[in-house]
Design a protein around this nucleic acid. Structure first.
Lengths: 205, 205
DNA sequence: CGAGTTATTGACCATATGGTCCAGTAAAAC
DNA sequence: GTTTTACTGGACCATATGGTCAATAACTCG
């Protein structure tokens, strides 16, 4: 039926997302989007509607993936406490890309960036943000409850409370990333989180 | 010395800051600034230079005030642990403005918003952010050390580590504010922080 | 092939934007 | 009172921006 698209939708959405991610919504122009995706204005509008619709589309996808990622990790892991710890101390596999010297501020979390820029004025964005963070909070809470059940956290732990606190720390870390805090300091914070809030389970031996 | 200014500089800077705060840098137009400050373009440019210069000026002032505020509170307080706790549980005086119903996302922290929007592309902004958060971290660290000296925290506490963790939680809370998290949840997080990381000092009796 | 349908391209448009300039004006210096 | 200085307001400008549209190209189905 009709002329087939010349582009790969997923690829285009990824490119658009990266552009919004890098520069924010307001600072990303249609020109930027066109260059990044390789599409002309007409195609962009025909396929995705206007700038805002495109933005919401990629934002929603990202939010969904994020929630999936976290919940998936919790669901897949066999030891809840280990999964939780993994969110705060990078596994050995991440240690490869060690590079020293001055730290460039990273682009952070796309959803967090977008919420900061737009949540106060755009209910759509606020909605996605709220739903996503609620989901992550729930996952954390669930994992904490599981860890308590596993005997890895004290009996009297309030799972929701600790889950929320962990979410807060994770978002705080995400933010500090943008302020050129040194990786060592960030690692120390992760370590402190684990030491103080997620004490090591008894040796597995 | 020529004609005197018709406006109050402080007032104008506050108005401009609020405008940037509410909408972000990119989404604030010169028109917005003119309406908010009541000045014409000519005056604005004559007095403060272009948009970016004005922005950096108000951002720097804000960052400075923030750091001053935190450090001042630490310096003034007589019990370091109490000052720290005060950052996470609202004092009784703040409880007045309780309003129920749906929570509107607030504008958050101007420096955090600006860092999120611009830090990755504007070294000036990154610089202010880094300096300010470093200062706050140092204050927290200092206060923690003081609290240890006061016997309000365990001897083996690592002040820097705990200071950084507290900074992280504070920023995380600041962020979650923008996601319409309920005030009760936020309070719970504050309470959890105090309970778990800043245990109450022995009763003052 | 021809009709119908859909995608692509780039010209085009109205408006918004950041920024400059200058004629006018008000206070201060003399 | 005149001159000097600096502030003000708005006209003006070049460009950027988000968005539309008509012409055309590519494919499917009859």
């Amino acid at each position: 039926m009709g002329r087939p698209r010349k582009f790969d939708e997923e690829q285009v959405l990824r490119a658009a997302r990266d552009e919004f991610w890098r520069n924010g919504y307001a600072a990303t122009s249609l020109d930027d989007l066109m260059k990044a995706t390789g599409l002309g204005k007409g195609s962009l509008y025909g396929a995705f509607g206007d700038k805002r619709q495109l933005f919401l589309k990629v934002l929603s996808a990202y939010a969904h993936e994020t929630a999936e990622g976290v919940c998936g990790a919790v669901a897949r892991g066999d030891r809840a406490i280990e999964v939780l710890r993994g969110f705060f101390v990078p596994g050995p596999q991440d240690a490869v890309a060690e590079h020293h010297g001055p730290v460039a501020p990273t682009r952070g979390c796309f959803l967090a960036n977008s919420s900061t820029e737009l949540a106060a004025r755009d209910p759509e964005v606020t909605g996605r943000a709220r739903a996503t963070y609620q989901a992550v909070e729930d996952c954390f809470t669930h994992a904490v409850a599981q860890a308590v059940a596993d005997g890895d956290l004290p009996e009297d732990t309030n799972p929701r409370e600790l889950g929320r606190l962990l979410l807060t720390i994770q978002q705080g870390l995400q933010f500090l990333t943008k302020t050129e805090m040194t990786p060592e300091a960030m690692r120390e914070i992760g370590r402190a989180t684990v030491d103080r809030l997620l004490p090591l389970p008894a040796a597995v031996s």
